[in-house]
């Protein structure tokens, strides 16, 4: 389900670029012009230019813009340190903080008519989840070396044949649960808004859902980030 009007897609169509009308395109250019891709570029450009404009030059006495960013970055830094320690935070802060900002903005722009959330496509959330999943194994292997396999062996040796498949399955289930939750919540919000807008848009029916949508967007982004942090710290700590 798409929003009725997506202004970037309309602009691209006027420019003569092929915009796919189904969920995915067939040629490479068509895939690049798919709405979730163009709005991903839009969110990236938004984040880049807003931070560039508000943080033109860093000063000792922060102005308005710098104050805001210091609050955001400082809050996230405290949050990560309290959950996974100083070392990991220093190494992975850029990645997780970028994910947090990107997901928040991507969730929230879906509330504005004419925009859609890139996170309401499974491709986007699965890509984010794959990066998180691979990097938590990377952390584990770098921290423990080959002894990382002990994370999947369980506490007692004679339970290994039973626990090894269970551990592997529950590890792969992280991929599904992390990606489907973000995708499902945001797609539900988008679909509900579109349906209510079509049914009773003139009577402001979507307004209460929009208020809930703000809450869902922020909370889902925070939950994604918190689970990322939890997985990272679990991969780093010693096995059982």
């Amino acid at each position: 389900m798409e929003h009725p009007i997506l202004f970037i897609s309309i602009i691209l169509e006027k420019l003569g670029l092929p915009v796919p009308h189904g969920p995915v395109g067939h040629t490479f250019l068509e895939q690049l012009c798919a709405p979730y891709m163009t709005y991903t570029w839009f969110v990236m450009a938004f984040l880049y230019f807003v931070s560039k404009l508000t943080l033109g030059s860093l000063e000792m006495v922060p102005g308005k813009g710098q104050n805001f960013w210091e609050l955001v970055i400082g809050g996230m830094d405290d949050f990560f340190v309290s959950n996974m320690g100083r070392d990991l935070t220093d190494k992975f802060f850029p990645m997780i903080a970028t994910f947090a900002l990107y997901i928040v903005i991507a969730n929230l722009i879906g509330l504005i008519p004419g925009f859609m959330s890139p996170t309401s496509s499974l491709n986007t959330t699965l890509a984010l989840t794959l990066i998180v999943w691979l990097s938590h194994h990377f952390i584990g292997i770098r921290e423990h070396g080959l002894r990382y396999y002990k994370h999947f062996m369980g506490p007692i040796w004679w339970l290994v044949p039973l626990l090894l498949p269970i551990e592997i399955i529950s590890n792969f289930a992280r991929l599904i649960s992390l990606s489907i939750r973000l995708f499902g919540n945001i797609m539900a919000k988008e679909t509900l808004l579109a349906i209510l807008f079509m049914l009773a848009g003139a009577f402001f029916a979507p307004l209460p859902i929009m208020i809930l949508g703000v809450l869902v967007s922020v909370v889902q982004a925070m939950v994604f980030v918190l689970l990322t942090v939890v997985y990272f710290s679990q991969a780093q700590e010693h096995a059982h």
Partner: peptide, 28 residues
């Protein structure tokens, strides 16, 4: 971040993904 809000998010992250993880495990 205030304590109440961070506790709320912790609870949501911990218990909110029980259902998805359960279904995900069975599917996998």
């Amino acid at each position: 971040m205030s304590d109440v809000k961070s506790e709320f998010i912790h609870l949501l992250a911990n218990y909110g993904h029980i259902g998805f993880t359960f279904v995900g495990s069975i599917l996998v």
